[in-house]
């Protein structure tokens, strides 16, 4: 294997008509990372994944996976990746085992290694007892787990997962993330995941936030959180003016938010103790630690996405219903 990054895009763009789903995206993910791509609905995450998995051609720019160009060497790229798509892509007329056998045969796993690998993969997602059941009869979560097992079956260098844990129960989410972390912990294999769950993103080594097809933030979760403002102490006291004067005297920044004092500084627990020594009558105190979610909202804004399109759908549906009613 080369020391090339697991994923590298340069000015990667993809348009759908006049809509720029991806707009000159530059992204580099080092090998052995647990990497999360975040972004609001319609930001371009699935479009990025479609290009990285060779299913969609870029309009311009380039993308490399495991050192291979997705346009020039698609077969080598495909041999390097395991994919979980946003939508279920199993054959529901086949059993779980048959789905994995199909995958093993199309991914060059030797006949002798197929059975043990499949048994192992099924066990890893707790589906051993359902191996002979048709996927049709699976719950949504079981289908997802089977897809995750399938993506890992051939031990790909880069695992690409598009919102893999949607609809999974907390136990399964936890095991899935433990597996993803274990894969990245080898420092050989890379996990590239999109998610809307900020607690999941916080577990990653490295995070990128995209919006409107552009990269808007990049770094470790901690670094991104720091950009959303530091930790703060929020207090209500018997005499706010006095408490504020004390805080200022100690060199902390003081603000006001809905009748509460907001005091910014390092280590809010220690700040609270020192403040309590001087300014008596603290009635209420909260320590606020910004999370990745705050950083995400700060960076991408508060408005909902795809609202216009959804409104359009609803209008179309109403028209449709009226038309039916007339018949």
């Amino acid at each position: 294997m080369t020391a090339a990054p697991a994923v590298c895009t340069r000015a990667l763009s993809r348009s759908y008509g006049s809509l720029k789903a991806l707009d000159e995206l530059d992204l580099e993910v080092a090998r052995g990372q647990l990497f999360a791509l975040l972004g609001p609905n319609g930001a371009g995450k699935s479009t990025t994944i479609a290009i990285l998995t060779t299913l969609l051609a870029p309009t311009s720019g380039e993308a490399m996976v495991a050192g291979w160009d997705v346009v020039r060497s698609p077969r080598q790229v495909r041999a390097s990746i395991g994919v979980v798509f946003q939508e279920i892509s199993l054959d529901d007329r086949l059993t779980a085992r048959e789905n994995l056998e199909f995958h093993a045969m199309t991914h060059g796993i030797d006949a002798s290694r197929r059975s043990p690998r499949i048994a192992e993969a099924l066990a890893s997602v707790g589906l051993s007892s359902a191996a002979g059941k048709r996927v049709r009869a699976f719950s949504g979560g079981m289908k997802r787990r089977l897809e995750i097992a399938r993506a890992m079956l051939h031990e790909p260098a880069v695992l690409v997962l598009d919102e893999p844990t949607v609809g999974l129960d907390p136990q399964t989410r936890r095991t899935v993330w433990e597996q993803l972390a274990a894969i990245a912990a080898t420092r050989e294999r890379t996990v590239f995941v999109t998610t809307h769950y900020m607690d999941e993103a916080e577990r990653c080594d490295d995070v990128a936030i995209v919006d409107h097809g552009r990269l808007i933030a990049r770094g470790s979760p901690a670094a991104l959180v720091a950009r959303a403002g530091g930790e703060r102490l929020v207090v209500r006291t018997e005499d706010d003016a006095k408490a504020a004067a004390h805080a200022q005297a100690l060199g902390w920044r003081v603000g006001n938010d809905a009748g509460r004092l907001v005091i910014e500084g390092d280590r809010p627990e220690a700040m609270l103790a020192r403040l309590a020594e001087r300014a008596a009558g603290i009635r209420e105190a909260t320590i606020v630690r910004p999370k990745l979610e705050d950083a995400f909202v700060a960076l991408t804004g508060r408005e909902l996405r795809d609202v216009r399109e959804e409104g359009g759908d609803r209008a179309a549906m109403a028209t449709n219903l009226r038309a039916r009613g007339r018949r």
Binding site: R78, H103, T106
Partner: peptide, 9 residues
């Protein structure tokens, strides 16, 4: 299912 087939090497 076609997508799963198309990403196979």
């Amino acid at each position: 299912m076609l997508r799963a087939v198309l990403v196979a090497p």
